[in-house]
Design a protein around this nucleic acid. Structure first.
Lengths: 135, 135
DNA sequence: TAAACATTTAGTTGTTTGGCTAATTATAAA
DNA sequence: TTTATAATTAGCCAAACAACTAAATGTTTA
């Protein structure tokens, strides 16, 4: 039961649910892409990611300097979770907006993305991104 | 999305998950039966129940002095939730123990149960109930 | 009507959680 | 080998939460 509660707790947070749903549609995302998506500090994104990994919902692998995260579909009841959350993916404006934002984020090279996050303004954020309101 | 997060948060608590799973197997339970099951104060059980109702996972109806709770199966994605949690019901010792305890609890009249909770010791708790350990 | 009683609401307290900044670790580039 | 950098960890604070006791609410019975 503790295992199930860990998964529920892990998903019962807006930012972590956004991460999870983003990874339903994108095979792999690195920590800095998640950071950019959520618009929080890298430390905060890292904490959320570690909670999702600890709950057995995500797995990660290193790729040089980067750490890439993806869904861990091997967990108990994973299909039930997806079946539950899938309708959500289609109707939530927040999640739709995230998918739009991910088109931009994954379109940048990881180098440019991280440079941008450090405020060197080499890659201005296109107007309209991150501006839709939740229904 | 907020609706989904409410449901996840509501289930992401050990006592509330126990309530929910108890109601998967028992059509209706009153607040005092839940109180007896969880071994918490009536106020605490009432709060947990209200959170589950607010999340749309349970519904309630009044029957005289008593309030009876049951699953609200009309909610979005309810089947996915059940599909996810059903395996849990079979393997968790805590939940199995709860089902055993419910046999005793539902075997008592509501009157006797509530009298017992007030400590008049009219209905001694059978030895062995509430004693199994979680795996 | 008065007393008993099932449940809920209010108010308090200690714990958990989510965010931040700063410091640390590990990898890559100069 | 020094510097830059992606990610994590540590430490802090405010907000959220779960438990309790006590008081309030609404229903039934004497």
């Amino acid at each position: 039961m503790d295992d199930t509660i860990s998964k529920l707790k892990a998903l019962a947070d807006k930012n972590r649910l956004r991460i999870f749903c983003a990874l339903v549609r994108h095979e792999e995302l690195c920590a800095c892409q998640i950071t950019e998506l959520l618009q929080v500090t890298g430390a905060t994104a890292s904490r959320h990611l570690s909670i999702l990994v600890a709950a057995g919902l995500l797995k990660s692998r290193k790729d040089g300097r980067w750490v890439l995260f993806s869904l861990d579909r091997s967990g108990n009841g994973f299909d039930g979770i997806l079946q539950w959350l899938d309708p959500e993916l289609r109707i939530s404006l927040t999640l739709q907006n995230d998918l739009d934002a991910l088109v931009r984020i994954t379109g940048l090279s990881r180098e440019d993305l991280c440079r941008q996050q450090r405020g060197e303004a080499c890659c201005p954020i296109p107007k309209g991104a991150h501006t839709k309101k939740e229904s």
